[in-house]
Design a protein around this nucleic acid. Structure first.
Lengths: 356, 356
DNA sequence: GGTAGCCGTGTGAACGTTCACATACATCTT
DNA sequence: AAGATGTATGTGAACGTTCACACGGCTACC
């Protein structure tokens, strides 16, 4: 057991009969330490229960062993307020903490305004206070051009999540366009000839990519773009519900809906229920976000499983490597998965289709 | 805009024509600074974009401006792995980050093994590395007697969540027994005469308290304890489903179920569906955990809304006060709320009751 | 009118670590 | 055998802040 006062590197040095620096070399796995001495030091560390003080390490010019993950403040807080969970945050913690722990790092999570006028200052303040070894930018911050530059100026490696990869920073992403194209193609293969894409917000770069995938699949199928329509749901239940109702009650309604997030997919379910449309017999619904709510709802929804935790874990891993002298740029593409559950099925037979 | 190299207190001091210490007094809101000088320093801080370095502050013997929240590693990771969300984690972040931000603090979230043999060492390592100004212990760590003592020895204030309050530490809690009694009484008032409590695990102290409330309400109602039965669901879907099925298929099945968490409540819904029991017409189901899944499921469940975010926020607030010289003990009781939704209703008429 | 006390400010040291450099010894080269 | 190279270790300074204390000026009291 450690004694009351904190154990410092000096105590370990004395116990092992070496100097501070040698102990430092051992804990940082540096070269040029005799195996015998290394063992002696390690024994002393274990005996005294020594754990290096992170603040002091940072002060000494070393690493802070902190990875800062920044999230969209408005959306996160809105989700909290509304009593909806933040599955994204949960997944992020999953990947981030798990990976950081492996390397003796700690993940620290902060909220930053999306407003481009204030975001740089907020990030600047956070890094000035925390001095993290790396920063993870999540959507929509990952689409901000100013933030990575600001970090680069201060020599802090930066990883962007879910962004079309560039060459200057670490980009971790999945192929959003491909995923959108795949789910669209799958619905077309099921016989659907009129499809709708319930879009989030153009503020999120991913929205644009997914829409492109939707259009591409329509074109590739031979149905042509006219077979698809787009509704703006703004990622929100109420907005989406209104648009979806408009879509489903018009003359030639779509038989398949692809919603960009779970909330809008639930809105679709809700509207279908209200209009007496059976899912999936009369209407297929797919979500682009595979949250617990989506998985465990009744019926469970077909969805794209985004590798959120994996992306954050990869970002942490890259950032940690970068802070140890590795490259501070590169791109990692992670696979998504289309999970077909109970809300998608063959298109209704044209004859039986209800109109109105 | 801040310049490339980091701005230190010394730069501010020079710009304002004062000494380090005076700047320090200003940023720490210390007394004995002329209003005129204070203004000058504040202007310099704003002009240079100065933000104190947390590591240096800690090294100087000051605060770390870090609150450490520790969670149950096994359960959290199991939830992540299973693809269920961790609403608890999300709520915790909600309360914690929001409150910490207000005071210029940062919340840092760590997982610690529940095993009493390793927990103290893990906590010890975490605080040696991080040197937080306060630690929040969540269930079941809040029931561990050793952890708060360890923290007290190192002079770190500690807040326990959801624990019967003591006198030595900061305890933030809701009345679990009362909540269990209330929901039980409510179901009895709806005419239910045979009730079941789907218990989690005695490892969680709250389980015991809730069970006590359940028994108390039964006794108080005049029905007597014989009207209630207890199933051990271990907080898990599969375990709960099995026990619930056993309960519902026996000779004289309960007409109302109270599950200690959402997962077990969903298990109850699942079993009811399988057995062809209509909810709430033939069976009432209530959850003791009001997660987004519970709120947005179809039908939405009746549940106890625990003030999780509020408890963490209160804990942060108390810890921050304690680290500023306030009392490091005290207890705060926060109100829960019984939210009646669509899964509870009047007991089925005795005549119509199906048996088997 | 001296001295006790408070107010406002500054100075040196300390926190625990790493960095840059210095040193001692061993090994290889010519 | 002398120098060059490399390995293993130690020493002083630095990081940016706060703490403890010192100091000068002002007020107040007897």
């Amino acid at each position: 057991m450690a004694s009351r006062a904190s154990v410092t590197i000096e105590h370990v040095a004395q116990a092992a009969g070496v100097s501070r620096q040698t102990v430092s070399r051992v804990i940082n796995k540096g070269p040029n330490v005799k195996p015998e001495v290394r063992e002696r030091v390690e024994a002393a560390i274990a005996a005294l229960g020594y754990v290096p003080n992170l603040s002091a390490r940072r002060m000494g010019g070393g690493k802070s062993y902190l990875i800062l993950a920044v999230n969209d403040r408005q959306r996160t807080i809105e989700n909290w307020r509304a009593g909806r969970g933040n599955d994204w945050v949960d997944q992020m913690l999953h990947g981030g903490i798990t990976e950081c722990e492996k390397h003796g790092y700690h993940l620290i999570f902060e909220l930053i305004d999306t407003d481009p006028a204030t975001a740089p200052r907020q990030l600047s303040n956070a890094i000035a206070a925390l001095r993290p070894d790396g920063v993870i930018l999540t959507p929509p911050h990952s689409d901000n051009e100013e933030l990575p530059v600001l970090l680069a100026e201060r020599g802090i490696p930066c990883a962007r999540i879910g962004r079309r990869p560039g060459t200057q920073f670490i980009d971790v992403f999945m192929d959003e366009e491909e995923a959108a194209a795949e789910i669209t193609a799958r619905l077309i293969a099921l016989g659907h000839m009129r499809l709708a894409f319930i879009a989030g917000s153009p503020e999120y770069g991913n929205s644009t990519k997914r829409l492109a995938g939707f259009s591409r699949a329509l074109a590739a199928s031979g149905l042509g773009e006219a077979a698809g329509c787009v509704a703006k749901g703004n990622f929100r239940f109420a907005d989406a519900a209104q648009e979806i109702e408009r879509l489903l009650t018009r003359a030639d309604p779509p038989t398949a809906l692809i919603a960009e997030n779970d909330e809008m997919a639930f809105a679709a379910m809700h509207v279908a229920d209200r209009l007496g449309l059976e899912v999936p017999q009369q209407l297929s619904i797919a979500s682009f976000e595979d949250t617990p709510g989506v998985r465990f709802s009744v019926p469970p929804l077909t969805a794209i499983r985004q590798p959120t935790a994996e992306m954050i874990a990869a970002a942490c891993s890259q950032l940690i490597a970068a802070s140890a002298g590795g490259p501070a740029h590169g791109s990692i593409k992670l696979p998504y998965r289309l999970v077909e559950r109970a809300t998608t099925g063959p298109a209704p037979a044209p004859a039986k289709r209800k109109t109105g």
